[in-house]
Design a protein around this nucleic acid. Structure first.
Length: 306
DNA sequence: AAGACGAAAGTGGTTGA
DNA sequence: TCAACAACTTTCGTCTT
């Protein structure tokens, strides 16, 4: 795997100016805004991908491995009959020893049952992260959250996959690279509803208090997916700053607001994208893009000639 | 032909009694 | 537990480029 330091040029526009965004753990091209996430931290997949489409195509992580045969038949069970290998009765001393051994074997079994569950959950986190192209630090954060949930015994009555997905969702928000519940649900095996419920539960129990997602956090990703330049993206962020000041973002879905800002920015910077395209990457409808962008234009007193 | 616009009805989730 | 509610979606017809 290539060392991040050796990556000197942007694969998209060839510009040499790459900026590290430590907060989001991304490497960003200052010229065109292209985001090179997996170069900086991600030691996960061994393949290299230069954009989201490639990453999705090459992500060959499929359905989760089954851990049903936990030890592949290698475990030994101590016989319950108090006989030795010749069929003779054991001395009382031996019997006591065997009893203790059996007890310990039981204990070891449950402890590696929780280990297996943890391993399974973490492999789920990894699998989902690969699909979503998330950097390593987010996976780590998700793993930490999941481990805490295990320690606090919060998984009882909940599916491991649900909690794993919820932990990942929380981790994304914590690391300021938010993914929507829908996006998480797409790569998970459980429903959006269950992930949401699990998330709320563990967030409450683990006292994880996350500010509502800011539309700004979506700009680099959406911008990158639409191939927008860095200037266009900064433009969108400026717009959002203004909008936030005037309270235009509260109560609105952050993805919708982000989409509108991106759309306006794309138009004013001469890199126009259609409402359809913007709506698609933001996972909202054109109607929402329109409504938000009309609001933004009116309230910010913007003239956007088309 | 494609994109933008907007009206109207429908959906799922939150809130407050 | 139920109904009201706001945000968002779906659908569809019209206008513009």
């Amino acid at each position: 795997m290539e060392r991040p330091e050796k990556q000197k040029k942007c694969p998209e526009c060839g510009s040499g100016k790459l900026v590290r965004d430590y907060e989001r753990a991304e490497l960003v091209c200052a010229g065109c805004g292209f985001v090179i996430h997996d170069k900086i931290m991600d030691m996960g997949p061994e393949w290299r991908a230069f954009d989201q489409e490639q990453r999705e195509r090459r992500g060959r992580v499929g359905a989760p491995m089954t851990f049903t045969i936990h030890d592949k038949g290698l475990s030994t069970m101590i016989d319950w009959r108090d006989r030795d290998s010749h069929g003779k009765d054991l001395t009382p001393k031996r019997r006591a020893q065997i009893y203790r051994l059996r007890k310990w074997q039981r204990r070891i079994r449950v402890s590696d049952a929780t280990e297996r569950n943890l391993a399974f959950a973490l492999s789920e986190v990894d699998r989902m992260s690969s699909h979503l192209g998330l950097p390593r630090n987010v996976r780590e954060a998700a793993a930490v959250i999941y481990r805490r949930a295990v320690e606090e015994r919060l998984i009882r009555g909940r599916s491991i996959e649900g909690v794993a997905a919820a932990a990942l969702y929380a981790a994304c928000r914590e690391c300021k690279v938010p993914r929507t519940l829908d996006e998480i649900a797409d790569v998970s095996r459980v429903s959006k509803k269950e992930i949401g419920r699990s998330y709320r539960f563990i967030a409450r129990e683990l006292l994880i208090h996350l500010r509502p997602t800011s539309p700004t956090d979506y700009i680099p990703r959406f911008g990158s997916e639409l191939g927008l330049s860095g200037e266009a993206q900064s433009k969108a962020i400026d717009l959002l700053k203004e909008a936030t000041k005037k309270g235009l973002t509260s109560g609105r879905g952050p993805t919708g607001v982000a989409a509108a800002a991106i759309y306006i920015a794309s138009v004013v910077s001469g890199e126009r994208r259609t409402q359809r395209d913007v709506a698609d990457v933001a996972r909202v409808t054109e109607v929402t893009v329109r409504n938000r962008y009309k609001e933004l234009c009116e309230k910010l007193g913007l003239e956007v000639e088309l």
